[in-house]
Design a protein around this nucleic acid. Structure first.
Length: 256
DNA sequence: ATGGCCTTGGTACAAGGA
């Protein structure tokens, strides 16, 4: 079973690239972030024609997430974090083949000390509390998406420049470790990886060409799934497209 | 050099992203 996550930065712009990528990689489950589409504008027919069941949770202009499955209809589908009132469409979760999949677009946070940073911290607290109960109900759980957190200095092209900056603050990293503390594992780090592996590169400054990026898109698997994890990779190729998303897809392979 | 680019909304440039 292959599960993928991709922040497409507007599905209206990136749909052809997504369809290409699905055809090439045939993932069983996909979560998307920053679709930036209301559900009535979601390209459901095109994705169904590509073999996927489609669940979208979006809004105008910003945010927006989706869950695609070609291994059966997701059930128990939830939008956002229950008990956390949120104006943004950030989380979609569903159960497929006994696996709870939680696809999330974590808040950006803008800058430490800002109101948006405070919202990010509240959101992260609510996510962790919800996931701790969710894991009791669904031991086989995958949390994946754009976390907007670079967990360690090795996930940052220039840790000195990024010291204390958004994505790299101690508070954000503490929350990431808190998620691991629930019994989750960063699938990418279960394997030997090339140094300077990023999932996001700034559109500016030729950052991709210079490989100056961050690893902020992640796939966390629960204790119960860890033995099943066979590989985890970041696919840089779509970043070389003519009008790329600034994020690359991340893929995990499970023997399920 | 407190920015460089891309997307949206809307039709000029501001906001947001990361």
């Amino acid at each position: 079973m292959k599960i993928a996550t991709w922040n497409v930065n507007s599905l209206a712009v990136r749909l052809p690239q997504l369809l290409d990528w699905l055809k090439t990689h045939n993932p069983d489950l996909v979560t998307l972030q920053e679709t930036k589409l209301t559900d009535d504008k979601f390209p459901t027919l095109e994705l169904e024609a590509a073999g996927y069941r489609v669940r979208a949770f979006g809004q105008k202009t910003y945010n927006g997430v989706a869950l695609l499955s070609r291994v059966g209809e997701p059930d128990d589908v939830l939008h956002n974090i229950p008990a956390f009132d949120d104006a943004s469409a950030r989380v979609i979760s569903g159960r497929v083949n006994g696996v709870r999949v939680v696809g999330a677009y974590f808040p950006n946070g803008q800058a430490p000390g800002s109101e948006k940073f405070a919202y990010k911290m509240q959101w992260l607290r609510a996510l962790r509390e919800w996931l701790s109960t969710e894991l009791e109900r669904h031991p086989k759980l995958v949390l994946l998406g754009d976390f907007n957190i670079a967990p360690e200095d090795c996930d940052v092209h220039d840790p000195v420049q990024w010291l204390g900056q958004i994505h790299c603050t101690d508070e954000e990293r503490e929350h990431f470790r808190g998620l691991l503390g629930l019994g989750m594992h960063d699938a990418f780090r279960l394997f030997e990886q090339a140094p300077k592996s990023w999932s996001w590169w700034d559109y500016r400054n030729l950052a991709f060409r210079k490989n100056q990026g961050l690893r902020i898109d992640h796939i966390l698997v629960s204790d119960a799934l860890r033995p099943a994890v066979k590989a985890c990779t970041i696919d840089r190729l779509p970043r070389k497209n003519e009008r790329p998303s600034d994020h690359a897809p991340v893929v995990v392979e499970l023997s399920l």
